[in-house]
Design a protein around this nucleic acid. Structure first.
Length: 302
DNA sequence: CACTTGACCTGTCCGC
DNA sequence: TGCGGACAGGTCAAGT
């Protein structure tokens, strides 16, 4: 489930690996994974150089020399994996994996590519390839004129980036107050309120701030809003530092796992002791239609 | 208008 | 072992 830290990790990888490459050829079989016309692809994508790689919320933006941008949403199971020519025909297992053995956080999750989940294959200069894999076919790649990207519906509606300097506590508070009668978990997941938060970091930050996810925003004490603000920024930053969370599918631009899940306090920890209250076990409940993880003792209050 | 539900998909897991 | 169904959760569209 790529959220802000996972997409940011992919962005950083692609920024190192992809910029300067030319796109030679593109193949895709599942039309919904890449809904542009063949004519647009051959006119604005083939022969283009990659200029820069940006991110907005959970969306990747690959800017091209044709003044078009590849807009990519990984949704739940999408992967963007870069493979060097020297790695072609091999499983993408690095020397580090051989040394550390299976289970190390840098383990590759990817075998030989393309595989059953490959939806789009980009042939690049110097024999490299970029694969868009997506088991569940919810994600997509789409070509837009770069100047039109801010006019995409999602981009017009999406809220502030939580890791930008301008995202202050007063901004956080006023964004939450737009939905003061809703439950806090639904509000954290609302991309028009804050960009990039998904199920993992919503649960992790609510545990950190000791707030029950079903609490109405208006009922949260001011001090706990402040705690939520700092917890949210802290979990997002820590996760980027750890290369994101690999729950099942997520990998970075080199096909490697992220290790934040090893540091998670509640997400997928049901049945294990709470770090604050060893006698209290983490529970999985349903809030805002989502699987939600809480410590019933520290997050008991409404 | 605010909020909830269904659709989009496939792989995995659980119970019978 | 096979099979049906629940579940995973990001976003949009439709429904209440």
């Amino acid at each position: 489930m790529p959220e802000l830290p996972e997409v940011e990790t992919v962005r950083r990888g692609l920024d190192k690996l992809l910029v300067g490459h030319k796109i030679i050829k593109v193949d895709f079989d599942w039309p919904k994974s890449f809904p542009n016309s063949k004519a647009d692809v051959s006119e604005f994508l083939i022969g283009a150089d990659v200029v820069s790689v940006r991110r907005r919320a959970k969306v990747l933006l690959i800017d091209l020399s044709t003044r078009y941008t590849l807009v990519i949403h990984l949704k739940m199971t999408g992967q963007i994996v870069y493979v060097r020519q020297s790695e072609m025909g091999h499983d993408s297992v690095s020397e580090a994996d051989m040394r550390f053995g299976a289970g190390h956080p840098t383990d590759s999750l990817i075998g030989r590519l393309p595989d059953r989940s490959t939806r789009v294959t980009f042939e690049l200069s110097r024999g490299a390839r970029l694969y868009f894999n997506d088991q569940r076919k919810f994600g997509w790649v789409r070509l837009y004129p770069t100047v039109e990207v801010p006019n995409i519906n999602f981009m017009k509606k999406v809220g502030p980036e939580p890791l930008e300097d301008s995202f202050s506590l007063p901004v956080f508070r006023s964004q939450l107050m737009k939905r003061k009668n809703s439950i806090i978990k639904a509000v954290l997941l609302d991309q028009t309120i804050i960009a990039g938060v998904g199920n993992i970091y919503a649960d992790e930050s609510l545990w950190g701030a000791k707030i029950h996810p079903a609490t109405k925003v208006a009922d949260i004490p001011k001090s706990k809003i402040q705690n939520l603000y700092s917890e949210l920024l802290a979990v997002l930053r820590l996760s980027i530092e750890k290369g994101g969370s690999t729950d099942r599918n997520y990998v970075n631009a080199e096909g490697k796992r992220g290790s934040y899940i090893d540091f998670a306090r509640v997400f997928r920890k049901e049945g294990t002791p709470c770090q604050r209250h060893p006698n209290s076990l983490i529970e999985k409940i349903r809030v805002a239609g989502r699987g939600t993880h809480i410590c019933p003792r520290c997050q008991a209050t409404y």
